[in-house]
Amino acid sequence: MRARTCGGALVLALVGCGGFDNGDLRTGVVRGRVLGAESGVARVNVMGDSELRATVGSDGRFELAGVPARALELFVVASRTQAARTTVMAQGARVTDVGDIQGKPGAFLTVRVRDEQGAIPPDVEVELRGTGEDRAKVDTSSGEVRLGPLPAGCYALEVKADDLEDVETEVCVREGEERVQPITLPADDDGGGDDDGGSDDHGGRDGG
């Protein structure tokens, strides 16, 4: 009898109805308006998360859904020449309006790629990580690619080429700056181009 009573109490303790779910509280929506937005060019995405991106309407309005509710930075391209970065504190299960974002003259980064012999490597791709920019192919005749407009700030630049070692380096640009970033891709002893273990030592040696 006593065992039955204890068992009943245990069952009561273990059985419950309902529960709590915080999933919907961890993301929110961020919206705003990009001033001077150029249709077809303007876009917004969350720095560091290339998947979170939104197009900008003709009125400059944008809305990012499923944004993690935390402090984050938006990468905004307003037009072919203007861009901006802005911070925002996204709130869970709520809409955070960042208001109007005024684009500023963007910087342009020209990445000049060479191998250790000074030759132009074939099939070189360049990416500014976390900006949402697609990977850009280096022109095989000039060995360069031009990225921009970029809001002033620092970026992680990643350069990959077949049969050469990948290179990743940080590049900082100022508002309206035209910058050339030379990159030398060392030979890949392992013969692979998927190695991310590139070194900054190969970048910037000819920069200026």
Partner: peptide, 10 residues
Amino acid sequence: SLRLDPGGDV
């Protein structure tokens, strides 16, 4: 308010 990470103050 709940204090979630991520989520902030809810």
